[in-house]
Design a protein around this nucleic acid. Structure first.
Lengths: 155, 155
DNA sequence: ATTTGTCCTATCTGTTTTGTAGGATTATAG
DNA sequence: CTATAATCCTACAAAACAGATAGGACAAAT
């Protein structure tokens, strides 16, 4: 598993939508704004959002004043499905099924692959149990930690 | 982290050397043989072994009847160092230091990166604590399991 | 001195990643 | 109704990377 630029942009854009979702604000859910705020190339972002839409993670409103929003609440979207959709399987090589096959067929590389399966399972455990809402929460806590640590307070 | 063909070939070749190391046999530690047995392109394998040598994982004997052998016992070589050497950092993106930097600076992506750090730590935990000897052992067990399961016994 | 191995560097080819570009389509505002 | 502003769709392109391939220099045992 390798998180590509596409993958990172996806997560950032979805997090942007999570913010809009939580705050009931219909702001910042248009590509133009997300692109600027998150510093993601506009046309590239279009492609990414299209993929996210076909994957059922976001929905869109066409036309003037249109935009994107999450297709389900942020507690129901986990990072695993996002990354699988955009970057493919989580395993270090191939996918879980392939790896299990090699192990069960007892191929010469079965020992190696059994470690690879452990790795893929460890990755999936984390990513499949971390939702956009969790990430949003973490972001808040991290920025709060930082404010407290630096002695700065914004009003 | 993504295990490339190079990475997989590295592990397979090292495991081949592990076998030679354990059995005291000086067989199968020449590139030509490893290449054939493991079905790895010979010239490609040369490059890989060169990298492994410069990384201090194997040593070589030049000239006729030369070949490769592990530079230290298989219990002291873990998969983490092999993969880092050949495929780079274990983190899903960038490396652990970069990721920690983003989190500590409290950047907008800190929440995402804190999850990525968890992932990289989970990967490192496994790979840094699994040695070539462990993999060798697993391989033996897996092939034994398979023999028992299928009712076949080789003498 | 010949054979058989490692060592070193350069090159090549196809794929993937990371975008750009141009226009079609759709819905809202005025 | 029309202008505007958004998503939608497809094609292309440049650059980086992966996965080799090639050719020969060097070293050591026979």
């Amino acid at each position: 598993m390798k998180l590509s630029k596409r993958g990172e942009y996806s997560l950032r854009a979805l997090l942007s939508l999570t913010y809009a979702y939580s705050s009931n604000a219909f702001c910042s859910n248009q590509l133009r704004l997300i692109s600027e705020k998150e510093d993601i190339p506009y046309k590239f972002l279009e492609q990414i959002m299209s993929a996210l839409k076909h994957g059922g993670l976001v929905k869109s409103q066409k036309g003037k004043n249109g935009g994107y929003s999450l297709a389900k609440p942020p507690e129901k979207i986990n990072l695993g499905e996002v990354i699988r959709l955009i970057d493919g399987p989580l395993a270090p090589t191939g996918n879980a099924e392939e790896i299990r096959g090699v192990i069960q067929r007892g191929e010469r590389t079965a020992g190696i692959y059994s470690v690879l399966l452990d790795v893929r399972n460890a990755i999936a455990d984390i990513l499949d149990h971390t939702t956009l809402a969790d990430v949003y929460q973490r972001t808040l806590e991290l920025s709060r930690d930082r404010r407290e640590q630096s002695g700065m307070y914004y009003i």
